[in-house]
Every structure is written in structure tokens, then in C-alpha cells.
Design a protein around this nucleic acid. Structure first.
Length: 962
RNA sequence: GCCGGGUUGGUGGAACGGCAUACACAGAAGCCUCAAAAGCUUCCGCCCGAAAGGGCUUGCGGGUUCGAAUCCCGCACCCGGCACCA
């Protein structure tokens, strides 16, 4: 093609002036990013309010289809991004751009979840205010992300540390605080309605006194039993090493803090709680209409842990009973002892003064009296961290309380133990032990020589004497035996039938009832930290709690001398927390007028946990500058309102890591439901469709000592890996600074451009699986864009090289098949195969030798969501004055989607023996005849008889011989 | 222990129950070039064979089916989640 002289050709070839190089890519990208920013290309209009589009008019907004496409927002880490971070952001951006080109009004933005421990720890270490380091980190991330060409509506980008944001976090807290759950109506209601019931006497107070007779703190106590956000002395996970308490979810299985890996102890402290358990049933039931991965739904269901069973009363004296929860009321006749959690409140009242006669020595724990045994055991249990409990889980420990209870069906007197394998937080904190049919009870009974009785017929050949067994028999698939008294017999019933029969019998007698229990606990909502949202709560001089009025929000994070929480020796279980905010006395003690004149108050000095800001940010994206309301109902209804396609409403697509399967998603659902119940939002669920993107992993190279060495400096030779001449080992791992294998997106942008990075990340594999980063392979995506560029633009002149002749039929077929396939892939978030199809079409054009405009234009549009900058540039060169962000995505012409002829394979007994080129419209009969006439087929059949012929026109014929 | 998910070329990965290995990386050869780069063309699962061709192949073992990477049962290994929850 080039007719230049050898000399100039050589010079020019090395630097084709209009070649799609990294320099050109950088130029194109920054130019288009500026255009998008200047023109507010990605600003999505709201129906009402300051973000409504005055020129378009509300009508045009609501007439358009619309999508709310959202990422799980990041914590702005000071370390900056590596290429793994933007994977999800690129995917949502591709999808958002695709939807815009399908005529949608698309809400797509990104905010920052900016309260958090790392900034606070940095502040403690350096004395620099966390706001300064956090805002610097946000600025850094913004510029890193800007280079990727993400089409965000920057007007809607919020940050959780912005007082104008967290005033609404505090406002929502107040809504939750000021409501209670009406279980009968299955909805949250204002606490004022409950107060009115108490005032009128419609609802009696716990001790029967009139409401007006109660003191302020007594009223607080009463209402605290109802409020959806309440403060209470509760057993919590106290982590002396961090100086703060932690939610159950933040404690690992081996009893350590998820952050810092410090031991965690059970301690009773006054803390803020959220009554998420009230929503247990709805949080399970409402998963059904959601378009979420089944695995995530399952994890949530397991976490909530709904189990059906019965409450049963075991009398311990004439006027006291121990209530247990069991899922096996069918085995009630087999309950031969009972166990209470060590902290159970009934323990003290049932303990007798002396050991009953003939008490087994092993049951006494070496103590002279039951009270002493209980006290010693309790102290030992409390001092144990969960780690120790975990390690010792196999060995059952406990002591006899000296008390006996009566089994309500057998009438037997059964000993009552305390043991730490029974947890105070689950059920009633008390169990009936059925050692023959429960592994834990069996272990306990074996250790303490407790009686056992078989009440479920063994089906595995073992005898009916449990003392001869190795372990409990816990199958549900059998029948009940040994279970009859004068009133009832369960004998011969299946486990399922017996459960129902036993429950009915208990209910009738008023000594039990069917009930549902949840594994889920109330959510511990306070932390002893500096860098979090303060509670909008104050206490008066009598210690009575007061919610601040809306007009006093936000309660801003005060300045303090020292940001650190008071930490202790990590093993000092007896320590208790001191909050950083309490250091600022001037802030803590305030004079306020809360309606009855100026009085002195003390502020709540705990702060909210990290999760608070992320529990509702989807709502603020919708109406980020609304100063009157958390979100205008019209805007909420527009973006999140329930429709036929999403019956519970919610964000159309929410993309993020599976590590948030339980915590964030459960908390956000809970808050959303409370807001729904109180009438603030029309949607029942915050996120309609959830998609979990996989992780980008990277090879980790370790030297002999096992320390990671910089992955970028590894040499590969002779089938081994070397760093500075030393042999190192390779393993798979996460990408990150500590493993010295992080690759910054900036590096890839410099070397190839953002479009290449976007394309490569999308092409690597399916979005939902983890895949290893391979810098070497990035060049493949770069070459594709270069070929695309060359198909449209001359590298030598920068002029268009597309032809204006109409495309021939095979080319149109290639085009329309690509359109059809890519559309399907885009809609299904299968970007890897979409990229492959675009490459195929482009390669077809390379081979063809020239590119008709008729094909170039749709091809550019097809690629636009994936590689938007180069697409805009080519679109402009093709003569379009407008950005293609709102151009129509190509639609396939069905005439060209099918091939002119298709290859039909002829199988003989399932093995391919011949191929035929046939028309797609061929009938089964014609195809069969054609196949049987084919010489290769005739030869392959030989003289074997034909038993059967299966024809599936137009693709396959299978001949069964013999 | 319980509950999920996975296992396809040297590598990342494609495949409505119907041609296994699309697309890409890496590798090989060629064209172009004084040369290199870039580009283009061809080859590239394994085994036998000079070739033509043949056989085998989706972790392993069974089954369903005319036909299985795909559905069912069992097993192995890997990755997640939960874990004394009565």
C-alpha cells in the first residue's frame, strides 16, 4: 500500500503518525473524558427536584425506560487501586452504556464508603486527622478511576463522611429508634403509638403500674424492649486488643476479630442494638422474588437460620419452670436431663443450698455446695475466649446445679446442669437433653454418666440400649418408640407425625407451643471508635434518653486530642471500653433546648459501625442534594419502585463481591424494610438483581524463606522462576501490595490505554468467576483495537478508509450474526463472549481487505460500551457530530442472522462420519435422504442394517446401525 | 461435620443434550524487509503413521439417551460459607 521511498518509508513505518499507539490512545481518551465531563454526558435526570432536567420536562423522563445500575462502593484506601478493583466498575459501566444505547435513562454513579478503621489507625499513628487522609485517598481514587472512562453521574457521587450525607444516616437511625415492631401486623410502627397504648392502659406495663407512675429511666427500659434500635446491657464480643466491641459477624469462627486477629471475649456491656431479628421471617421470605445468585440467597437463609420447633416448659418447682426450645418435640420422652447456659437468669433461683443426697461426685465439679460449683464454672466459662471454647468443643464440660426438673410427658425427675455448650443467645438459653438422639447431648451424657433412653427406633442394626452405642442416633427417617404415658402415645408415629402430635399435646395442656426460632441475633450497632457517625442521642441529668430533633442534625464528629480508642492487653478479658469521643468534654456536655427550656445533657459517645453508611446509599444516589428529605418519594418511586419485572422494587443491577453476601446485604435490606414500613420508600427491597463478580487473582512468588518477592521482576527460564538470580516458588494468590504482585491500572493505561484495559478485563473470562491476571496477555486486546482502528482509519494519513459500496451478503451475515450474539451476551452480562464475537467480526473485515461503511458504523457502536473512547473517536471520524453515548445500539436483521447454508453433521452411532452443506430450511425427511445417499456415509455403514435414523434438521443426522 | 460452587489444550477460557477446544495469550513456520519492529498467512489437544488416514480425549467410576463436557448416582481433589444454633 505504501508507495513511499525506502528511506522515508523506513522512518515513517516506525512511527506511523496515525497508528493506534498508546500515545494516540492517551490523547483520544483524555479528550473524550473532558468532553463527557464538560457536557455532563452521564447526568441522569430525575423526575423532580434539583436534578430534574428542566429542558426535557418530567414527562419525557418518566416515559423513558430507566435503569439504576450500581456498584458496591469502595473504601478509599490510601494504597490506591490495583487492576482487580475496577473489574466490577468496568462491567457495570459497560452494561450502563449498553442500556443507554437501548434508550434507557441510566442512573450510574460511584460514591465512597469513607468511615473506617484504616483511616483512624493512620490518624492514631501520625496524628493527622482521618478526614484529611481519607479525602486525599478519595481524590486519588477519583483520578485513577477517571482514566478508565467510567460513565458516572458525578453530581450523585456521595461520601459517607460528608456531614450532609451522615445527617441522613443519623436521621434514619432516629426513624429506627423511634419505632417498634408490631408482630401481629408484621410491620414497624412509630413508637408514639406504643406510648399511647401504655398511657391509655390498653397495653399494661410489665409490672402493672400506670405509665405516668414510671420514672423516665423506667420508661426507657420498657420502651427499650420494643424499639427497633435500643441500648441495653447485653453479652457482647469485647475485643480488648482493638478497644472496641464487635458484631457477631465481625468475629471469626475461631473467636478472633476479623480485623487484627485479636482474641474476643464475651462481656456484658451497655450497647446499642438493632432489632433485626424482628424481620427474620420477612428477610427470608422476601428473598424469593429477588434476582440473586441462589448461593447468596442460601447463605442469607442459613445465616438467618430459621428453625421450626416447640417451646416446652419443664417445671422445677410449684411456681417455676424452665422453658426450652427444641426442634425435636417428638423425642420429649427421651429427655433425661436438662442444660442451661451458664449465664441463664434462672440458675441462681433454682440452686439449692446443699447437694442432694447421692449426688454423683463427677457432677459436683469438686465444690462443696451447688452455689459454689455454679460460681466456679461460670467464672471459668466467662474467662474463656471463644478460641478456647472452640478448641475444647469436643470435650463437654459442665456442673450439676443441684436442681431437678420434671419431664412433662414422662413425669420423671431430671437433673438440671449448666454447661457452656448451651448458648445464652439462642432459643431460650436452655435445652432438654436427649442424649440418645443428639450428638452433643450424647457426649455430655457419656462424660457425666447421665441416663439415656432410646425413643427413635434405630434403623442401622444397633440395639436399643444407648449405653452400648458409639454415638447418638439422629435420623429423621424412622419411627418413635418407648414414648407413651396415660394421655398420649407417640409410638409408631414417624418423626414428622410425632413432632406435630407432641406439639399439639403440649399446646392443649398449656405447657408448650409450636414456635419458630432464628439463629440470627440482634445487630450490635455501637462501636468505641472515633471515625464513625455519632449517635443523635443525649442523656439528661437523670440519665433519661432523648433523641435529638431533626433540626439538630447532623451531629458532627467532634475534634479530639487523641483518636485512639483505649486499647488493652489483648488477653485482658476484665477490661471495659472507653470511647474516644468521651475525651472531648466540651462536646459531650451540652446545653440544649429540647422543648422544655435549656437544660444540660450528656451526649452519647459511642459511634455507629462502619456498615451504617452503606445501609442506604442507594437512596441518596437518587436524590443526593435534597435538603428536605432523605429522598423525594417521586424520585424513589421512579428509580426503585416495584414493577411487574421487579415486584419488590430495588436497584436494577447491583454488582459487587460475594464477601458481602451476608453482612452488608442483610443490614441494607433490614434498613430498607424499616423505611418501607414507615412509609419513606415504596420499594420493599433495595437491590433487585445482584451479581457477584469474581476476583482477579495473581501469581505470588516467594523466596526460600517464604517471603513474597516483586512479581514484576521475575524471570522465567528453564521451566522455573527466578528473582535476582535466585530460584523462587510460584503460587496462586490474591492481588495486593503485601504480596508484591499488585498491578496498577495506571501502568496498563500508560502502556496500552484505558480501552485496552477495559476490554482485557472483560475478555478474561466470565464476570462471576475469579481469574488470574496475566499482563503478557493484555496485548491481545490492544491488537484487536489496532486492527479495528486500521479497518476504519489509515495509519499513514489518519483519513477514513471505509468504502461506500454496499456490503455483500456474506459480510452482512457476519455483521448481523455478530449483532445478534453480542446483544444477547451484553444483556446476560457475558462480556467475554461479546468481546470474542466483536473480534471475530473485525477479523472477518481484516481478511476481507476493506470495510464498507455499512459495517464499520454498527461495528463501532457494538464495541462502544466496551471501549468507549476509541469508539467515540471513530464515530466522529465517520462523520457524526454527536457523541455515540445515546446512539441506538445496532439491531440485527433476522434475514441475515441465519446462514445461507449450514453444515450438517452425519453421525453413525453418535460418531461424526460426514458433513453436508445444506439450506437452513431443509426438512428432516430431505436431510435424511441426503445423508443416506452420501458416499462417505454409505461406505461407513457398509452392509450393517440400519435400525433407526434420527434427523434434526438442519444440523444433524444420526444413523443407528446394527 | 453441615451447606454451596468448581475440575475442558502449554495458559485464560468457548460450547440451547447434537461438529469438544470459539476468541485470546504463549509457541512454531512462512511472506514482507538489507535487517528489525509492525503487519499479514499457515500450523498448534494426545497417541500411532512418512503421508493418506485411524484411534483416543472434557478429574475418576457407573447410569439415562440414538447421542452426554452438559442430565442422574457414587468417588477423588480444589475453592468458598457456616460451625456446640438444641
Amino acid at each position: 500500500m505504501s508507495e513511499t521511498t525506502p528511506a522515508s518509508g523506513a522512518a515513517e513505518a516506525a512511527t506511523e503518525p496515525f497508528r493506534y499507539s498508546s500515545t494516540l490512545a492517551a490523547d483520544i481518551e483524555s479528550r473524550w473524558q473532558d468532553v463527557w465531563e464538560k457536557e455532563g454526558t452521564f447526568n441522569a435526570p430525575n423526575p423532580v427536584g434539583p436534578l430534574s432536567d428542566a429542558t426535557a420536562g418530567a414527562g419525557s423522563v418518566s416515559a423513558k425506560p430507566h435503569s439504576f445500575i450500581m456498584d458496591m462502593f469502595p473504601y478509599p484506601s490510601g494504597a490506591g487501586l490495583h487492576v482487580g478493583h475496577p473489574l466490577g466498575y468496568i462491567a457495570t459501566d459497560v452494561y450502563a452504556r449498553y442500556q443507554r444505547m437501548n434508550g434507557h435513562n441510566v442512573l450510574h454513579t460511584l460514591g465512597y464508603d469513607a468511615f473506617g478503621l484504616p483511616a483512624e489507625q493512620h490518624a492514631v499513628a501520625t496524628g493527622e486527622h482521618p478526614r484529611i487522609s481519607t479525602e486525599a485517598a478519595i481524590a486519588n481514587m477519583r483520578s485513577q478511576l477517571r482514566r478508565l472512562g467510567l460513565g458516572h453521574d458525578s453530581r450523585r457521587s456521595i461520601s459517607t463522611i460528608d456531614p450532609e450525607y451522615y445527617r441522613w444516616t443519623q436521621w434514619i437511625f432516629l426513624q429506627i429508634f423511634n419505632s417498634w415492631y408490631d408482630a401481629e401486623a408484621a410491620t414497624a410502627r412509630p413508637i408514639a403509638e406504643l406510648v399511647a397504648q401504655f398511657e391509655s392502659g390498653e397495653r399494661p406495663t410489665p409490672d402493672g403500674r400506670g405509665w405516668s407512675e414510671l420514672s423516665g429511666t423506667e420508661r426507657d427500659e420498657v420502651l427499650g424492649e420494643y424499639r427497633l434500635a435500643y441500648s441495653k446491657e447485653v453479652p457482647v464480643n469485647w475485643c480488648p486488643g482493638l478497644g472496641t466491641v464487635l458484631a457477631n459477624e465481625e468475629v471469626t469462627a475461631d473467636g478472633r476479630s476479623e480485623r487484627g486477629n485479636f482474641p474476643v471475649f464475651k462481656s456484658k456491656l451497655r450497647q446499642w442494638m438493632m432489632r433485626i431479628t424482628a424481620y427474620g421471617d420477612r428477610l427470608i421470605a422476601d428473598l424469593d422474588p429477588l434476582d440473586w445468585p441462589e448461593a447468596i440467597k442460601l447463605q442469607q437463609r442459613n445465616w438467618i437460620g430459621r428453625s421450626e420447633g416447640a417451646r416446652v416448659d419443664f417445671a422445677v418447682s410449684a411456681d417455676a419452670a424452665i422453658t426450652v426450645f427444641t426442634t425435636r418435640p417428638d423425642t420429649l420422652f427421651g429427655a433425661t436431663y436438662m442444660v442451661l447456659a451458664p449465664e441463664h437468669e434462672l440458675v441462681d433461683s433454682i440452686v439449692p443450698a446443699a447437694w442432694p443426697a447421692e449426688t454423683h461426685e463427677d457432677w459436683k465439679g469438686g465444690a462443696a455446695t451447688p452455689a459454689e460449683a455454679v460460681a466456679v464454672y461460670r467464672a471459668a466459662a466467662a474467662a474463656k475466649s471463644d478460641v478456647e471454647r472452640q478448641v475444647e468443643a469436643k470435650v463437654k464440660t459442665g456442673v450439676f446445679t443441684g436442681a431437678y426438673a420434671t419431664n412433662p410427658v414422662s413425669g420423671e425427675s431430671v437433673p438440671v446442669f449448666i454447661a457452656d455448650y448451651v448458648l445464652m443467645g439462642y432459643g431460650t438459653g436452655a435445652i432438654m437433653a436427649v442424649p440418645a438422639h443428639d450428638h452433643r447431648d450424647f457426649a455430655m451424657a457419656t462424660a457425666f454418666s447421665l441416663p439415656m433412653r432410646c425413643v427413635v427406633q434405630p434403623t442401622d442394626g444397633r440395639g436399643t440400649d444407648p449405653h452400648e452405642w458409639d454415638d447418638a442416633f439422629d435420623t429423621y427417617d424412622s419411627v418413635i418408640v418407648n414414648s407413651a404415658n396415660a394421655d398420649i402415645s407417640l409410638d409408631g408415629l414417624s418423626v414428622v407425625e410425632a413432632k406435630a402430635a407432641a406439639t399439639a399435646w403440649l399446646t392443649e395442656r398449656g405447657i408448650g407451643e409450636g414456635t419458630v426460632n432464628f439463629r440470627l441475633r440482634d445487630w450490635l450497632f455501637s462501636r468505641q471508635r472515633y471515625w464513625g457517625e455519632p449517635f443523635p442521642i443525649v442523656y439528661d441529668e437523670d440519665g433519661v434518653m432523648h433523641a435529638l430533633p431533626e433540626s439538630m442534625l447532623p451531629v458532627e464528629v467532634p475534634e479530639v486530642e487523641d483518636y485512639s480508642p483505649h486499647t488493652y492487653d489483648p488477653y485482658d478479658a476484665a477490661s471495659s471500653p472507653k470511647t474516644p469521643l468521651s475525651r472531648n468534654e466540651a462536646w459531650v456536655n451540652v446545653e440544649l433546648d429540647l422543648g422544655d427550656g435549656v437544660r444540660s445533657y450528656r451526649r452519647e459517645t459511642n459511634t455507629m459501625p462502619n456498615w451504617a453508611g452503606s445501609c442506604w446509599y442507594e437512596l441518596r444516589y437518587i436524590d443526593p442534594v435534597n435538603t428536605e428529605r432523605v429522598v423525594d418519594p417521586a424520585n424513589e418511586q421512579y428509580w426503585l419502585g416495584p414493577t411487574e419485572a421487579k415486584p419488590a422494587g430495588g436497584v436494577d443491577l447491583y454488582v459487587g463481591g460475594a464477601e458481602h453476601a451476608v453482612l452488608h446485604l442483610l443490614y441494607a435490606r433490614f434498613w430498607h424494610k424499616v423505611l418501607h414500613d414507615l412509609g419513606h420508600v415504596s420499594s420493599v427491597e433495595p437491590f433487585h438483581k445482584l451479581f457477584n463478580q469474581g476476583m482477579i487473582t495473581a501469581d505470588v512468588y516467594r523466596d526460600e524463606r517464604g517471603f513474597p518477592v516483586p512479581a514484576a521482576e521475575i524471570e522465567e527460564r528453564d521451566g522455573g522462576y527466578f528473582w535476582q538470580g535466585e530460584a523462587v516458588k510460584r503460587e496462586a494468590g490474591k492481588m495486593g501490595k503485601s504480596l508484591k504482585n499488585a498491578v496498577a491500572p495506571d501502568t496498563i493505561c500508560e502502556e496500552y490505554g484505558a480501552d485496552t484495559l477495559r476490554l482485557y478485563e472483560m475478555a478474561m473470562g466470565p464476570l462471576d468467576v475469579s481469574r488470574p491476571w496475566d499482563t503478557r496477555a493484555v496485548v491481545g486486546s490492544y491488537r484487536f483495537l489496532q486492527r479495528l482502528w486500521r479497518n476504519v482509519v489509515s495509519e499513514a494519513t489518519g483519513e477514513l478508509v471505509v468504502t461506500d459500496e454496499p456490503a455483500d451478503e456474506p459480510t452482512l451475515r457476519a455483521l448481523h450474526k455478530a449483532i445478534d450474539g453480542i446483544r444477547g451476551d451484553m444483556s446476560g452480562l457475558r462480556f467475554n463472549t461479546a468481546v470474542a464475537k466483536a473480534i471475530e467480526l473485525n477479523n472477518y473485515l481484516v481478511k476481507r481487505g476493506s470495510t464498507p461503511r455499512e459495517v464499520a458504523e454498527p461495528l463501532v457502536l457494538l464495541v462502544a460500551p466496551l471501549a468507549p473512547h476509541i469508539a467515540e473517536e471513530l464515530w466522529r471520524k465517520l462523520g457524526h457530530a454527536e457523541s455515540l453515548v445515546y446512539a441506538d445500539y445496532p439491531v440485527a436483521d433476522p434475514v441475515y442472522v441465519v446462514d445461507e447454508s449450514v453444515t450438517c453433521v452425519v453421525q453413525i452411532k453418535g460418531k461424526v462420519k460426514a458433513r453436508l452443506e445444506v439450506a437452513p430450511s431443509i426438512s428432516d425427511a430431505e436431510l435424511e435422504a441426503l445423508a443416506l445417499a452420501d458416499p462417505a456415509v454409505i461406505a461407513a455403514i457398509g452392509d450393517a442394517p440400519i435400525r433407526k435414523v434420527i434427523a434434526r434438521a438442519p444440523k444433524l443426522v444420526n444413523i443407528v446401525t446394527g
